[in-house]
Structures are given as C-alpha cells and as structure tokens.
Design a protein around this nucleic acid. Structure first.
Lengths: 350, 350
DNA sequence: AACATAAACGTGAACGTTCACTATTTAAAA
DNA sequence: TTTTAAATAGTGAACGTTCACGTTTATGTT
C-alpha cells in the first residue's frame, strides 16, 4: 500500500482544486482558466507528479491505431514482408494499452496505388503512421496533410532529404557500405580488384543504394585498391550473361559488393569459387546462398527490429508522451554462415 | 467502452459464484471447494477469460524484487559492470508494474563472498534471481534452496552441466568459437597457421572458454589448417614476453583467436601488423584496440541485452505467468571498427 | 439436537485515472 | 442592477482487479 508516487489527487489538493481541472491541464483538454492552470502547473512542479499509466489506460477506452504504409513484397523484392512479424510481436506486448496496427500495401512501382493508400490513411484518422517514403513528391504532400491533422509519422528504411526532420528508424546506409568495404578489405588479398554491382530498377530507393556505394568508396579513398563497377537496369537473364562475361574477363577481381538485390547476382557464382561476395538482406533466397557458400557476408536491415522499435516509439510518443529521437540507427549486423541461425527466426532480443 | 474481453465478473456470473472465489482460483490462493473450483475452471474454459494486467497491477500493491548475483568488475575483467545499464533500462520500462532489482556483487575468486551473498539473497526473499554460476558446488546448493522456496533462477553467461534445466540467457559459446573460426578462415591466406590463445585465471568460467575453443577447432576439423596453441596462467608481463617470443618464432601465424581476456594479449601486437586478431567482449580497453586496428574482430556477449532480456523474462514469468524458454541464446554479433559505434552505447533496439 | 469450529463463499472498498455531468463563478447584455 | 449565457470548476461513477473482512454453509463433538 505504498502511496509514494504523487497522483492527480495530491496535486489537486495542493493546488486547491479538484481532480477535474487537473486532468484537463495534464491532457490539455481546455476549459481551465489561466490562473488555475498556473496554480496546477506550479503544484505539479513542486510535488513532481508521476502519472500512473496503468490507471489511465484502465479507465480510458481509447484505442490507438497505427497505419503502416509499405511496398508489397514481390518475387524480386521479398524484403518487404519481413516487417510483419516485428509488428505482430510488439503489438502483442502492447495489446493491454489498446494498440492496433493496419498495414497498407502498394506496389513498388505503382504511384497511383501509393496515393490511393495515403488517401485511405488520411480518411481513417490514425494516431500514427509508419511509412517507407518511396515516392518523394507524393510523400511530401502526404506528410504535410498528416502534420496538419497532428498525426505523427515515422520513416522506415529510407530518409527523404526534402523532409529531414521526420523521425527515422533504419540503417545508416553510408556506414553500412563503409563496413562492407572494411570486411572485403580484410578478406581479399592486397593486390586484388574489387567489383561493385548496382542494379537499379524503376522505382528503387536510389538514394539509399547510392549512399551504400558512397560509403563503400569512402573506405577505399585512402587505400591503394583498384575498383571497377557494373551497373545495369536489365532483366535478370541478361544480367547473368553480362556479368559472367565480366567476371571471366577480370581475373583480378576477388571481392564483390552488391548494393542491392544480391539474389539476382548470386546465380553467377559457384560455391567453390574464389570470390568474396557481400550484399544485403536476410531474405530466404539469400539465406540459401549464404548456406551453400555462394554469398559470404550479408548485412541485415533488420526489418523485424525496425518494426518492433517503431511500435515502441509510438508507445513512447502516444502513451508516455515522451519526445522521440529524430534518428534511430540500428546496429549494422554482419551475418555469415555460422551466426545465421541467430538472426533468422529470432525474437527482438538482440 | 468495449466490453469485449471477458473478465473476472463475467466468469463469476457464469459459474454462479461471486468474484472472490474466481480470484482465488485464478491465483491459486486456496480456500475454494473442489466443486466450485471445477465450475469456475469450466466457466473459464468456456468463456475464455483474458486477464487485465492493468487492473490487476493497479490494485495489487505487490512489489516484485529481483536479485542479481554477479562478479565484481576488476581491472582485468571489467566486463561485469556492463549489465547494469540493461537492468536499469528494463527496470525503467517496467516500473509501473512494481519491479525492482538489487545487484549483489562478489569477487570473482572469493568463494566466501559468493556464499555470503547467496545467504543474504535467501534471507531477503526475492521473487527471482539472476546469477552467473561461477562456483559450481555452491551454486547447486543455492539453487536447491531457492527451488525449495519456489524462487525462479536464471543463469547468465555460463551454464552449469549439473543444473541443465535452469533457464539461461547468453551466448552459445561453442557456436561463437565456430564463428570466430569462419571469420579467421576467410581473412587469412590458405597456407597460414592459426594460433589459439587461452589465458585461464584461478576461478574463470573454464567450461565457457573451453567451449569456445572446441567450437573453433570444430570448424577446422574438415579443413587443412595447422593450428598451434598458447596457454598460460602467468601474470600479464610474463605473458607478453613469452608471447612476443612465440610470434617472432612463428612467421606462418596469420590468424589469432583469443578465447578470453584479449586485452591482456593485445599489447604484444602493433597496429601495423600482419595478423588478424579476434577475441571477445566490447569492454573499453578492447574498443580502444579495435579502433587503432590492433584487434580486428570482437564478439560481444551482449551484457546489456542479457540484462534487458533477463528482466523481460521475469516479467513474462511473474506478471504474465507465462512459461519461459529454457535456453535463450542471443545473436552472436560481429563487431569491427566500422560498426562499433552502433554496439557501444546503444539501447536494446537490436 | 445443540453447539463449536472450520472451511467456503460473498461483499465491497480500494487502486489512480477519465469523463460525462452538474454546480458554480464570471462576464456580458439588458 | 438584474438577467442570461458562457466559461470554468467540482462531482462521482466507472474501468477490472485484489484482498481484508464478514457471512454462510458444512463438518464434527457432546
């Protein structure tokens, strides 16, 4: 029967009012005169009110619903289905607090669908929105409208230079490229050549992938190392033939860095190879290549953790009313064959 | 005003009793006749009771206090101070649920102090205990007594073969050694030699370190690779002279795996070296060596995450009354110079 | 059968908030 | 000044549990 923490009643007593106005002040519901508001604020200051979330949530039936706006997973980009588990787990923990999430999908290349989903989200008046800002101009418009309605947004995966102040959860792309470079540098012989592969599709997150490449190159700026680059927007079959030609013609290449979609490149290489291959994302196909020694290193973008941490952030913001960090960069995990199993199907305990 | 979830009242009504006995049954407080207990249980079965933790915690003033029994940090083993932050953060999140933790320390080599702390813990009747089972026989005795009092225990870091059923949070030592081997194998030339260094002190977790070594050796079983080993129980200065002698005499050594206390070995190696050094723990000294390129890879035991996950586990067990997983192996994170900053001072968001 | 005792069960007041509602004060209009 | 409306303040019943306590029922003893 501890009565240590000072509650709404205590501060009401101290301010000479009843709990009604205090509640109004604490939750800026309005309808309190300037003077009493000041008295209440002073009382809070003096006594140091600690809100009891349990009691608050118990009484108020308010449901918090969050929208997530993500690309559809496709055979070429299965990455996007990975967040779902993180959402589910976090949601499950926060169920007593009345949290709900709804995922809205759009096809990666379909701007119309994206816009339609943003409209649907605006209609439904969510309490918070996660999104991957694929279409810059449309995202800007959407975020402006959300802001007007006072709905907080969090970006996943990619940031938008046009909106530098939106909170972000994801990986530092530049640093991840830099890290890939350090790994390759350690793994290949000093005199060898390094190959960068960059496969851009219509509506990819170019900036994201370019940052990786820039980070990668940055590492080698101060070193002696010859670097070549293969770039293509072709279909997978063409890439394979072109690439295997390039590889045959370049015997000095020992290390290969693939900025995105490494699963489309991997078939070119045999398990019994003399290359070190490094790329991104723990999707099923890549895991297969990692297991049979085609891929050497994978860098995970941690979609599970992104999703989990994102929900936590909304909890902090909406329930605890804490200010949230603008940028939250997740650890850049290095996954190889022998630690794979700890990243593959694991909970958030990382 | 959702009344969806069926509560204690609903099931009381359905069972034809009042809420009193229902509460007693739900929390096995006793004092309920067989027949009514059955009726209540049947009602629960039929209606599917969902407990409301918020209401439960709001009313009950019960404080859950957890004891942690950890070695003192020393200049040679500063690792043990790393858990504190994880405890603090988790505690902070769970404060509304009435959680508390108290850390009991003993000197790594002082069996007496260990026993004294176990006695103190037994006296104070905690609701749960974390511990690192350094002294096997004494731990067995302690755990038996805790079990008699119905107090759950979780092991950190090391497991005890004598007590295989105690829940454990930590790293899979064998796998971490295996991983270190794969990393070294990728980084050194095929014809080079590998050196294993093992420095055992009086009361170290021998088993733990031996597992690492076994995992390491396992990797190379199927490969052609000559491996030599340096073992010592000497003081640091002697080790340094011995070791630098050994290194000079073994020009073929390119990769070095240190099973524990790599900070005591690192001074032997210069930044501008031709060795790849891999060892354990993100302690301050090692971080320094990683930054100036003396150490190449560090494997973190994630004391922060251990502590955080441990508290979460007690939350699941004590508040949610969930059965907890026996073994919870944390991801084996590979830390190099360029992803260091993401592991060093980061929250649990991994 | 009457009583004592113990076991089983029911009751209702909390826990700290929220929020619809009523009561009061204040300001504006008559 | 009185009347009226608007703004502000106060009230108290919930929310779903827990738990101390009082009441009822069953069991055993004389």
């Amino acid at each position: 029967m501890k009565k240590n923490p000072v509650g709404i009643k205590d501060i009401a007593l101290h301010a000479g009012v009843s709990t009604g106005p205090v509640d109004k002040v604490l939750n800026n519901r309005g309808g309190v005169s300037k003077k009493t508001e000041e008295r209440i604020l002073k009382a809070i200051e003096e006594l140091g009110y600690t809100p009891n979330i349990l009691a608050s949530r118990l009484k108020s039936a308010k449901q918090y619903s969050i929208a997530a706006l993500l690309p559809e997973a496709t055979p070429d980009i299965p990455y996007w289905k990975e967040h779902e588990r993180g959402f589910a787990d976090a949601m499950n923990e926060l169920k007593p607090y009345g949290f709900q999430i709804e995922v809205h999908r759009f096809h990666q290349n379909d701007k119309q669908a994206f816009v339609k989903q943003t409209a649907s989200i605006l209609e439904n008046n969510y309490d918070g929105v996660f999104m991957v800002p694929i279409f810059a101009a449309e995202t800007v418009k959407f975020v402006q409208r959300l802001k007007r309605n006072g709905i907080p947004v969090i970006f996943f995966d990619t940031q938008l230079p046009e909106l530098p102040n939106i909170p972000f959860i994801g990986q530092h792309s530049f640093d991840s490229g830099f890290l890939a470079a350090e790994l390759l540098d350690k793994s290949v012989s000093g005199s060898s050549t390094i190959l960068i592969i960059s496969l851009t599709q219509e509506q990819d997150n170019h900036l994201h992938f370019t940052s990786r490449e820039n980070g990668f190159k940055e590492f080698f700026k101060s070193k002696q190392r010859s670097i070549i680059k293969y770039e293509s927007t072709l279909a997978n079959e063409h890439i394979e033939t072109e690439l295997s030609g390039l590889i045959k013609a370049s015997p000095l290449v020992e290390g290969i860095f693939v900025t995105n979609g490494i699963q489309r490149v991997a078939p070119v290489f045999s398990p019994k190879k003399n290359h070190i291959l490094i790329g991104y994302d723990l999707i099923e196909e890549n895991v297969k290549y990692l297991k049979n020694d085609v891929i050497d290193f994978l860098i995970s973008q941690q979609p599970y953790t992104q999703a989990y941490a994102g929900i936590q952030l909304f909890y902090d913001l909406l329930i605890l009313k804490k200010a949230i960090n603008k940028k939250s960069y997740l650890p850049i995990d290095i996954v190889i064959k022998s630690n794979l199993k700890y990243y593959n199907h694991i909970g958030h305990g990382g």
